[in-house]
Design a binder for these strands. Structure first.
Lengths: 343, 343
DNA sequence: CTGTTAGCGCATTCAA
DNA sequence: TTGAATGCGCTAACAG
């Protein structure tokens, strides 16, 4: 087992001082062309790579942005990573990705790890339950944080949100006005889990019902953690429980994926037997038959905005304050609601 | 903008020596209960978090394993991350995830970054073109590397591979023997891209043809980088070019996803108009209609094996040597090939 | 153009 | 049970 070589090792190999090697490595200051070549040869020979830790320790910063998301297997979050990564690398910074698996405990751990790593900023798609830690980091450590898809009243920082009220309203209204459905199911997150965002969606659903003189029926709303399995089970039990259900709205693609499976197993066809729409969409939409009516996907918009906002905040270097960006909702009408379908 | 507090800050706040704080933080050595409480209070107050960089610098290791994969949006790799992560965390180590986007340049950069970070080991799903760097790291820096899905003759380290020959053979044979197809298309990677692995698959395809007395037709084989778009385009042009094509094999799910889209747009139905199978599968399979005939998914097996192998190698602390694990292929017969389908 | 000094934050070692 | 000294690898500041 080899050891890692250091500036000093390279210096000795090249017969110069460590500082000269440093200058070559960082392309800073004047170095004689011949000396430079000697040094480069030594670096090559030893496969020297500068120690990030030592550099960070010296610099007291990391040049890293950490991204904490709840589910790396979910296309929505994977796209957020990819799109924000592009922006971040373009700004010469590096990235650490953390997968919290919808666990507040893990999220907390990763937040603290990010502080320990002295990251320059954090992009957080929160699972909730970490308001205290977030505030601590913001206030006591002064690390900028951009929060995606969640909203904490008492945490003053940057937020990027869907227009959840508006979006869910649009979906519900479409089912009512265009397809005359009255009995519409809604599968969404636990209220305690993703905080106020969930509430906004529910409000939009209710408002659309009210505006169209349909009475809200609590039995048609199902709650759960966002897993495909939950989407499957909640859909199944809702359909078995409510025989006359005319339509179903899923608050996200995870639930939507589970719902499609449930439909399939129950031999319930959409839109023939039931109209079906989901809040957001991801890649599989375009290959599912019939195609799904959804809101326009905003993952890349989320990612880019998050990265830009964060980098701006890092450069500003002033105390956190609350700023909220809301991405408008746009309805994409496809087949699963009953529109556009020709047999 | 606050600064990060240090051991010293906490020590001053608590009225003790830095070393005492260190002992509290690390739960090592003797500390008076009362002193401990004072220290904890100070830590809380300052939101002190130990500097990972300083610790690493001191320890000359990072306790981190880096995972470099070509596409984070691909379920196959996302699952590799998740499953290896479980094993790695259980062993008390942390993780860095790098998304190389099928770019050899980025892969090279991430390999060097991993060395710079003094990671304890690397799990690499390679895009190819980095053999030299890998060998350098292995030999000169002594960092263990496990390579997934690729094979480099001249790089002596751990490999985890599908049985590509066997797998593709099984798929091809099934189409021939059970469904009597003779004109079978095959969409696979560029030979130069993923090295010998691609060659093995192609060999399996050819061997199955030969064993069943079907002549190999070069025109039926399409090559490209593994993107959904390529899968789409290659499928489309193959179908338009070869009107009498009876069946199609995709070498992976990425191509498969593109193929499904192409079928859809061309109004080619499978298995009615064409039999369709893919090498591996991922989550969308179970919601696509008809369901896809594939080989059993091995992503989690890959991830777990990779992590275990790597950790074993790290603990061994001896020079790299070549070890290859091959995961057997198992055919999962579903609907898309023409089996099992009832109208 | 090159070298020396010092210190970033932490934990090992030794001393009290 | 606690503290002081030292050095990990690097680079800013200064000196030559």
């Amino acid at each position: 087992m080899k050891k890692f070589s250091t500036l000093k090792d390279v210096a000795k190999e090249a017969g110069v001082a460590p500082m000269t090697v440093s200058r070559v490595v960082n392309d800073s200051g004047y170095v004689n062309e011949k000396t430079r070549e000697e040094v480069l040869k030594a670096i090559e020979k030893l496969n020297y790579r500068p120690s990030v830790s030592a550099r960070k320790l010296k610099a007291l910063k990391s040049n890293i942005i950490s991204i904490i998301i709840p589910d790396i297997k979910n296309d929505f979050y994977a796209n957020i990573i990819e799109s924000s990564e592009d922006v971040i690398r373009k700004n010469g910074m590096d990235i650490m990705i953390f997968n919290s698996k919808f666990s507040s405990e893990l999220e907390k751990k990763f937040l603290e790890l990010s502080v320990s790593d002295r990251v320059d900023g954090i992009i957080l798609a929160s699972t909730g339950g970490t308001e205290k830690e977030i505030n601590n980091i913001l206030v006591k450590n002064g690390i900028p944080i951009v929060i995606l898809e969640s909203y904490f009243k008492n945490v003053n920082t940057d937020y990027i949100l869907h227009k959840y009220f508006e979006g869910t309203y649009l979906l519900t209204e479409h089912l009512i006005k265009t397809h005359s459905h009255k009995k519409i199911g809604y599968i969404t997150l636990n209220v305690d889990l993703i905080n106020e965002v969930t509430v906004e969606g529910l409000k939009g659903y209710k408002q659309a019902l009210t505006d169209n003189k349909i009475e809200f029926d609590e039995n048609l709303v199902m709650h759960g953690k966002p897993t495909v399995e939950n989407g499957y089970n909640l859909t199944k039990s809702l359909i078995l429980k409510e025989k006359t259900l005319q339509a179903l709205i899923c608050a996200n693609t995870i639930f939507g994926t589970g719902a499609v499976k449930a439909f399939r197993d129950l031999k319930v066809r959409f839109p023939d037997d039931i109209a079906f729409v989901t809040f957001d969409e991801y890649d599989i939409n375009s290959i599912i038959t019939p195609s799904l009516t959804t809101l326009e996907r905003v993952d890349r918009i989320f990612g880019e905005n998050a990265a830009n906002l964060l980098i701006k905040r890092i450069k500003e270097k002033k105390a956190a304050e609350k700023r909220v960006i809301e991405i408008p909702a746009r309805l994409l009408i496809r087949e699963s609601c009953g529109c556009l379908l020709q047999k």
